[in-house]
Design a protein around this nucleic acid. Sequence first.
DNA 1: ATAATTAGTTTTATATACGAAACACATTAC
DNA 2: GTAATGTGTTTCGTATATAAAACTAATTAT
Lengths: 267, 267
Amino acid sequence: MENALVKTESEQSNRYMVPGLIRGLKILQAFSSEKPFLGVSDIARELDVSRSTAFRLSLTLENMGFLKRVKHSKKYCLGLKVLDLGFKLLAGMDIVDIARPHMEELSENTKVCSHLAVRDGISVVYIARILGKHHTVSSVGVGTRFPAYATSTGRILLANLSIAELATLYEGIELKKITKNTPLTIGDLINQIEQDKSDGYTLSWETYEKNLASLAVPIRDNTREIVASLNVSCPTTTYSRSELLEQVLPELMQKAASISTALGYRH
Amino acid sequence: MENALVKTESEQSNRYMVPGLIRGLKILQAFSSEKPFLGVSDIARELDVSRSTAFRLSLTLENMGFLKRVKHSKKYCLGLKVLDLGFKLLAGMDIVDIARPHMEELSENTKVCSHLAVRDGISVVYIARILGKHHTVSSVGVGTRFPAYATSTGRILLANLSIAELATLYEGIELKKITKNTPLTIGDLINQIEQDKSDGYTLSWETYEKNLASLAVPIRDNTREIVASLNVSCPTTTYSRSELLEQVLPELMQKAASISTALGYRH
DNA sequence: ATAATTAGTTTTATATACGAAACACATTAC
DNA sequence: GTAATGTGTTTCGTATATAAAACTAATTAT
């Protein structure tokens, strides 16, 4: 009972959280392509709860269709119901439907891949992708997360925050050196974002991955806030830096403007 | 306290279920493209729980990233974390990775859309899609669910069950007449499935949607069970019935065989 | 303007979800 | 073979999550 007081350890601060739900969701998150099958005991170890609790939680998730028993085994794997949630979210995002035709034209005209992304805390989450028909294809599928500070799309989205908000957001977060071009301090990041703002675009040349170029611009809605970022990405060999800026950027900005207009933004 | 005994009403039978988790998941499922924003009171009404409970559950989901407050409002919308689960599931399904290149060839050669689907109870769930380059594109995205009895892919997947299992699965389920070709009784369905089995394929001609044709075949793995269904679909005007069977079917079966082989199936 | 309604949040007494221990039955060790 | 460990499941007393009520702070009605 002496550890009843030491509840602050790694748990969320709020005293209103319901443990059954936290744990249930953590179970779903515990599954991965490396660990696709977990038994009750595995789950109990993973979450540091008793086997009886793990048992009841798993049973609940199974009954709801979020977990499935694998045939002729007592182990569980993720159930197909987990797909529903994600696709319901995307279906509700009319920005995806609005943007897609423009993105298809963009990809058709530039021959490269295009992505639409939104910010979730310090992450960029990709919510739409059009594969270029004629060149190396993107491996960034819908649902992919990247650190915002290290990607062109991410920096565009961070530009919507004030310096104070940025500082709060990145308080205690370490910026990892991914390639030679990634910002290493919040100061660096803020400077880059200020530069982006005056340019109106972000060019990332091997910032997140060697040999990968990406050019991103903001999309705004009727509130005038930056709600998404539209980008094109390709190998650094497809277009040179100047070709990207001279040939691709105007096309990209025009499509972004069309999407913003469709979302109610008045220029 | 008199209603404490009447717990069986619509709740799950099992006495080990943890209510906090059930309710939390039901909250996530309550959001839809028609109702993208819900407040604490809305949620309380929707789940028939007290506002204080709805409050604590929402707070928990918010802290976990599964719900987000919409700006300048107390309402919630789905958080982007829900995407993670679905895409983790798909990433773990190596059948998708294995099938995709074959599906791309298939779509390239036949010029129409191809889908890969698995069964989840009485539903078919689509887990991969390749859009045809030259014709009307499919609106059946990854994650889409359809009633298994009414689709070609679904009937192929149902063929893996014994008649007894089929009867159990559809016990108390009403088959709705979707078009003139949908089976209306379990007897009809079983007859159709028996026919499919001897044919080795299912042709659905306007079965689920007017003007839509779909041709599906089974995919088996090392256990010799039908684990997925591969199909092509197109408007009924693209290919005639006989063209589908003579030109497209051999190609489809060959690709399905390749995928089955890659999954360990020995012919 | 004022009252009435509805919203989200906080408190608190009690119904209940939880961990510990026991159980049954595998699988592995020796 | 038997012992030893590991698994999923069940029971049971107690710590705790919950519903009801109280409390604010917004909206809406009048």
